[in-house]
Amino acid sequence: MSEQHEHTHHIVSPKVYVVILLALCVGTALTVWASFLELGPWNPVVALAIATTKAMLVVLFFMGVKYSTKLTKLTVISGIFTFMALIGMTLADYMSRAWGRW
């Protein structure tokens, strides 16, 4: 209740949605094209970078996080943070197992 003053009901114009749609389509085409290139270790990096950019566009505009409260932004960030903790700490174990015993 004390946070309701933060509630700004921003209505995004359809023009923005069309631009985002086009950007997402370009991103999809780009990532498919990139997967056919020989980039060595950069293949997954490029694929994930494009996917993350697309996801960011969806989160910021389609889901309206760009126009929403700090609380929503914090919620999204905390989700990413915990997800990274799970992946990062688990992978840290798997990666360092290869280093053997000291």
Partner: peptide, 22 residues
């Protein structure tokens, strides 16, 4: 609390380095 879970697995065969960090 989210960064300590592997201390339940010290004898299970996780890496030495992960063990140190956890």
């Amino acid at each position: 609390g989210f960064f300590v879970w592997a201390h339940h697995m010290f004898i299970m065969g996780i890496s030495n380095y992960a063990m140190l960090v956890f």
